[in-house]
Structure formats: structure tokens, C-alpha cells
Design a protein around this nucleic acid. Structure first.
Lengths: 204, 204, 204, 204
DNA sequence: GGGTAAACGAGACGGTACGTCCTGTCTTCAG
DNA sequence: CTGAAGACAGGACGTACCGTCTCGTTTACCC
């Protein structure tokens, strides 16, 4: 089998891989340069040296294109990590992960595009669904997996709700990033992990 | 002093109050009807029976107008509450507040417009600053005030960071609302409060 | 040569002939209906069922469009006469032509549009140049040709300046049409021809 | 009677002469600077340091204002000549007048504004009527008066139509000015006068 | 000289049109 | 027979002026 189909796209083995990459790259670059509000399909097509139709043919919306650009270009080519670190020390492991998250959110190369993507996802349920399926869901599952292990090891209360736990740990960081209500630092990440874990720890 | 100025607006006693109300109302109604993506200045002007220039004259951006519409129409005329409830029972008080928050976020009349507003704030730093000054900041201060009282009463750890505390309590709810990662219920609000307070409580 | 281009238009074989005709027709009709002062690109586009951009794409100004409409719609499809009548009787021939001119100028269908066109030409040198090249110049040449023949036949003074002669014959009629300084009749046309020819005739 | 009323304006002795002059001057200057097409009431008001209403109060249209500006500023303060020169030599007298006309039309200070005024008069019958009454008519009468004298002196045919005569002499010059169909020179003016007079002279 | 009514500067208002940009669809042509 | 190039109908943008309409503020007449 020589022609693999990328999942999610409706059809066609005839598709030009060159154009696809050019479009995704142009979209990703442009959103960083001019911001999401001024991002236009026309601009992307021009930058990519591509007809507009070629974009409309393969992506249903600007958000979907942007999302695709993100997945394809911002993530490592191997498809991303398959598990969170597990050294046995839950707190250390989570701090590692949350500090990395904070760093990524603060990176000026990603801040703009990620806000753009977030915006699209928040306002477009269809895109939200695709995000949940392709990125958000799997990532959440990895987090829950690590927490499940911790719960099994007695580091979390037996009856802890893993979804709640994920939200308690990652929600505050996301919120502070979005609303800039305070400094988004590694120290903050650490405090969040400590506080959340204390709240989630077994009684006595 | 014979010439009174309406507070809040930067200038001009010549401004037509009738038009101002009509514009704010039209904007608020339209964002609910057609959604934020399809909200146009032209549409607002037409609905309000007003020239476009009258909108551009007084608001710097669509986001600012929407934000103003929100503040003016969605908030009680008396200016909102001046303090969070304080019965002495911190957990009960916070659950009350967070349940109300959840209810408001779930209200179909507000969900759409609030997402729109959130979007604008997240992407427009100028608007974010105005939001922080006029709404976000004061609200946060009320929350911190209640938590300060609790800390003083020994219900929270002495060294607790109040900003962190606010984020731990409200962040998870906001995040779940935005990303629909799970059911946004009163029960969820309760669990968040319980977990956060346990994490923030005094050692021993 | 396989790719024919429509003569006159600067470029593009991709242009929609349907839209072009609709626009010219709409412009011509509207100038007659609402007058030149109230003629708007927006109105023409709406009437023609065309996007405004399609007009801006192909015409540099309202005047140029109107001029094109005139040339295309008011002139016979074969491109107009190629010579003035020449029966040998100069006076009769000129009276015929000038009476026809008077009649056209008085025709309510043409009076308004022609005033509009005249206005544009008088005030826009670029348009004046195009007019001279495409309509005014050739027409003038026809007139001069007829007068040249007459001069050769000894019906005009040998040293007569043909441009002056054309102006002496047609100038007064144009002027009376524009400024309504007197009745514009066939009789007036006749008197003008008679007087001018007497002034231009050979000495003795 | 101490308070004289300027003729033409509807009423009021309270009118500010300062504003009136400022408006007329601003209008005249602006039409020379930006051209008629870009001349706006708003611009005139701003330049004159005057409220828009003050313009609308006293002039019914932009054309009327421009016309007034012309009459007031471009004409000598004494009200203009009351007769054409009459030395007994009709040809010389007319050449003098027509050469002066040519010179005025060629003057770059007047060319633009006069084209603007011409445009307005040609397209606005109301303005045309006012022009005829206040300027065109009287001027024409002066010309006819001179020609009448010449006819009486036997220098023109007895049955000559004076209106025709005026048109034969001045029409060609006006036409050449408007349409730039040839050089507008003193020599041209002379040739027109010579030709027209020969056409209008007594038989034999 | 004080009272009053108009004309004034300023400029907000409801509108119309401008000329530009972009959308999503449709058509043409080169490789 | 794909895909770039780009014309098309349409809609919104943000700007410029239109002509009307208050606002206070002179100004000049009348008493």
C-alpha cells in the first residue's frame, strides 16, 4: 500500500502533497504574522502560490485549516507523546508537564496562533468536536491515565473523579493564560499542582 | 456646575442617549440571534435605526461595543453586588457563588454573547485591559476579599496566595464551560469548591 | 492565432460579456432616468445584477463607463457613418448634417446623457483624450474631409483653415444647446450654415 | 435708508459680512486647489471657519455658491463694463473683446473654476436661469447692442439676427475652449471674427 | 444698558455612496 | 483532467459628505 490516506480528509489519492504543505505552512506563518483577525483565505492562497479553490476543496472552514496547520506543523512528526512521564513521583511528574505547558503557552511563536485556535474551538462546535476527537480527547486520556495510576498507587483519593482532577490541575493555568489575570510562571504551575494534589489526596 | 456629564463616557454632552441605548440593545440582541461571527456593524446600525458613523464615533471596535452592551444591559442597573456572601461558612458561600456562575454560563441567553465577549477579550489586549478595569478586576477583588476574611478566620492556610486561590476555584469551571470537556453542573461546582478548599486549607 | 481578443478592451479574454452588456445598459438607462448627478456606481451595479467590483475592475471612472455605454449603445453596431454626404451641393449637405445634429441634441432620450457625457469630458482630461481618440477625432476628420472636397471644388476659399471652418459651423449649435441661449431649431441650423459658408467662401 | 440689502439673497440685515466673504473666498480658492469634483460644503465650511448651517442658510446649492463666489471675486468691484468698445471699427472692436475672452479662458487661475461653473450651469436649469439673469443675459445684451449699432451703420446685413451673430462670433471660441479641439489663440479669435463678419456683412 | 431673537461655530445625527477587501462559487487555460 | 489563476455576485468594511438638527455663544437691534 503506497498511497496512505490521512484520516479526516474526505477522499482522493490525487491530492497534491506539495500544495497541501504549502497551504498549511502559509496559514501557520500568516496567523503568526498578521494575527487571526486579519487572516484571510485569499492571503493564504496567495502566500502558498495556490488557487483559492484548492483550499476550499479540502478544508471546510478557516478554523479547520488552522487547526490542521497546527496539528501538522506544531506537533512533532512522530505523532506526539503516547504517555505522560511516570517516575512514581506524581507531583514531580505533573510539575514537569505543567511547566512545559506554561512554557509553550508563553512562547511568542505559539501564543498568537493558539489563541486563534482556542477562539475557533470555543465558538465553533463542529471544530470543537474535531479538536476533541483528534487532539483534546487523546491528550486528556493520557493525563487521566497518569492520574489513574497514581490513584491505584494510593496517591490520590480512591473516589477521585479523574475528569475533575484534570480540570483542577490544568484549568487554572489555562484560565490565567487566556485572561492574563496574573503572571504565568513555572512557580505558579508548581503551586497549582501542589494545591490541587493536596485537595485530591486520600483522606488522612 | 451646570453641565453634567454622564460618567464613564470620555466626552461630549451632545451625545444622543436614545441612539446609544438603541445601539447597545441592537448589538446585544443581534449577537444572540445571529451569533458573533455574523455580527456586523452594518447590521447593528440598521437594527438600531442609526447611521454607521454614530457607532464608529463612539466605539473603537466591535468588541468594545459588545462589551459595553454587556455591561450596560446584562448587569443590574445598581452596579452589581458589592460583596460576596459571608455567612461564616466559606464552603457554603463559595458553592452558592459558583453554582450561580454555572447557571449563568449555562443560560442560553448568555452563553453565546459571553463566548463572543470572551473571544474578543482573549484576542484584543486593549479590550482585555478595559475588561480588567471595569469588570474583571473589581469582581476578582470581591472574591479575594471573601477569601481574605476566611484566611483571617483560619479557614485557609495563612500563607495562601489569594490570586492562586481564586484561579483554583473559578478556573476549572471556566475551562469546562469554554471547552465543553464535561458536564457543567451544580454538582461539578460543588466538587471543585470542596477540592480546592481542601488544597488551600491550613496544614493540620 | 487562436485566441482572439475583443478589440478596444485592454485585456483579458476571461471577461464576462453578459456582465459587460448588463452594466453598460444599466448605466445608460439610469442616466436617463435619474440624471447624471444622481447616478451612482452602486445603483448601476444593483440594476445590472452585478458586484461593484466588476465595474471597478473594468472601468477607471464613472465618466469612462458612461462614455463606453454611449459608444456601445447609442451608436449603430456597424461603427457609424464613414463619410458625410457629398451631393456636390455643400450647403445642402451641411444643412442636412447640422439639422440631424440638432435633432439628436433635442431628443429627450439623448439630451440628458449627452450633457452628462459632455460634462465629464470637459472636466476630465484623460476622458477627453479618450473621447478625442475614439469619437471626436474621427468625426471631426469626416467633417474636414467633406470641407476639403468643397475647397478643392472651389466652393471654399483656397486658404481656408478646415479646423476653423468646422468650429464656425458646429460651434454655434453646440453652444446654443449647452447654454440654451436661444431656440435650437432646424432654421437656426440653416442660418448658421449659410452665414458660415458665406464667411468661408472664396473672395469674389 | 441705512441698511442696504444685497439683491438676490432672501433677507436679513443681520447677516455676517465677515462669514459671507470667508465662505466665498474659501469656495473660490478650494475649487482652484482641489477641483470641482472634490469640492465639498464641509471643506468650504472648515476652510472658512464657519458652521455648515451658515452656508446652507444662504445658498441653495453648491453651484449657486460657486456662482456667487465667481461673481463676487472674479469680477471687478464696480460691476463690470457697461458697454463693449465702439470705435466705429467693428472688426477691431470685436477682436479686442474676443482676444480678451480668450486670454481669460486660458488663464490657469480661471480655467478650472470656469469649467466648474460651466458644468453646473449646463446641468442645473435653475442655476442656468440665475446665470442668464445675472450675468449671461446682460453680457449678451451688451454684445447685441454693439452689433445693433454696427447694423445701423450698415456694417452688417440689415436683416441679420443679432442672436445668431453673437453665437457665430462667440460660439466657436467657447467650443474650442471646452473641447480643446485646437489651439485657443488670439490668432484664432481674429480668424473667427473675420469669418463671422464676412458671413454677416451686407450683400454686395 | 438690558433683553431678546437671529445668526453663528460647532458638530452629532440618519443616511447614501464611496472604493476596497474578502467570501465562496464558477470558468478558463496551461502543463 | 488537475490545479493556478482569477472573474464573478455579494456583503461588509471604514470613510467622506450630505443636508438637518440641536447645542451654547455672540451680536446687534429694540426698548
Amino acid at each position: 500500500m503506497t498511497t496512505q490516506r490521512r484520516s479526516g480528509t474526505p477522499d482522493s489519492r490525487r491530492r497534491s502533497e506539495t500544495s497541501r504543505r504549502a497551504i498549511l505552512t502559509a496559514a501557520f506563518d500568516l496567523v503568526g504574522e498578521v494575527g487571526y483577525a486579519k487572516l484571510s483565505i485569499e492571503g493564504i492562497a496567495a502566500r502558498a502560490g495556490v488557487g483559492k479553490q484548492t483550499i476550499y476543496r479540502w478544508w471546510p472552514s478557516k478554523g479547520a485549516l488552522l487547526f490542521d496547520a497546527f496539528l501538522t506543523l506544531a506537533e512533532p512528526p512522530d505523532g506526539g507523546p503516547t504517555a505522560l512521564p511516570d517516575t512514581g513521583d506524581l507531583e514531580a511528574d505533573l510539575k514537569l508537564v505543567l511547566r512545559a505547558t506554561v512554557e509553550e503557552l508563553r512562547d511568542p511563536r505559539y501564543d498568537g496562533p493558539m489563541r486563534a485556535l482556542h477562539t475557533e474551538i470555543v465558538n465553533d462546535p463542529a471544530l470543537a468536536a474535531e479538536y476533541a476527537e483528534r487532539l483534546g480527547g487523546p491528550m486528556r486520556e493520557l493525563k487521566k491515565e497518569r492520574l489513574r495510576a497514581a490513584r491505584h498507587a494510593g496517591q490520590l483519593a480512591e473516589d477521585v473523579d479523574l475528569d475533575l482532577a484534570v480540570d483542577m490541575i490544568f484549568g487554572p493555568v489555562l484560565d490565567r493564560w487566556l485572561h492574563r489575570t496574573g503572571p504565568l510562571t513555572a512557580a505558579f504551575a508548581d503551586r497549582v499542582v501542589e494545591t490541587a494534589l493536596r485537595g485530591l489526596s486520600p483522606r488522612r
